[in-house]
Write a protein that binds this DNA or RNA. Structure first.
Lengths: 117, 117
DNA sequence: CAGCATCCTAACTGATACTG
DNA sequence: CAGTATCAGTTAGGATGCTG
């Protein structure tokens, strides 16, 4: 029986614990579609995220090296976010998942309704 | 500015709320690698999942139509799980994500260490 | 063997108020 | 504008005991 992931140091769990939270992938997709964005622009694009969660999400993605954060010494302050090369290298893979979701969403919904009983 | 997901009915959020939990993708990858498996075999393959969460995860995946559940009328009982066609269609996309994780894990770890300060 | 029911904790998330 | 701090609610997840 194949069991190719030890419980520690498992890349599947690791990447998913980051991308699988409520907002990370949405932020990545947004930055990928729009390029460089200011904090408030990201917030407008994802209207129902709280300011706190947007900050937390952006900082986590930055810590992983998926996005970069550039602060301008201006008043009022300006902060710009964009994908790094590492982040960009991930996007085609994410896109494939999103495409699959779009394609098969109807089918999944149909299944769920049947299972509700 | 591109904003291609309404807050409701967003396929990205939907697919991720399912695949992005702690165990779903791990179960899918396990079934994909081993084919048909009994409950206890899945449990052995993913040693540190609790029985409860394994049950919950399997039922959710079944409800979405990604795996099938076949109960044999035997004593002791036997239940076999395997990917459906829908589930199998998802696996190549998941695999690309896993491959990316394996490739870039080192880089991500390096970033995290720097950011801890 | 393959589960379900119950209880419990910790983590995630949101609302609100405040600041450089 | 782009945050931080605090508080409170919700939910994911784990431990345990029991059953067909």
């Amino acid at each position: 029986m194949e069991n190719f992931y030890t419980n520690d140091n498992c890349p599947i769990r690791d990447v998913l614990s980051r991308l699988g939270d409520k907002w990370s992938m949405l932020v990545l997709v947004t930055l990928n579609a729009n390029g460089t964005m200011r904090f408030c622009d990201v917030h407008k694009a994802i209207a129902d995220i709280s300011q706190r969660m947007l900050t937390v999400t952006l900082r986590t993605l930055e810590a992983d090296g998926l996005i970069s954060r550039k602060v301008y010494a201006e008043v009022p302050p300006r902060v710009e976010y964009r994908l790094t090369e590492l982040g960009e290298s991930l996007m085609p893979r994410v896109q494939m998942l999103v495409d699959w979701a779009l394609e098969h969403m109807g089918e999944i919904m149909k299944h769920r309704e049947v299972m509700v009983k």
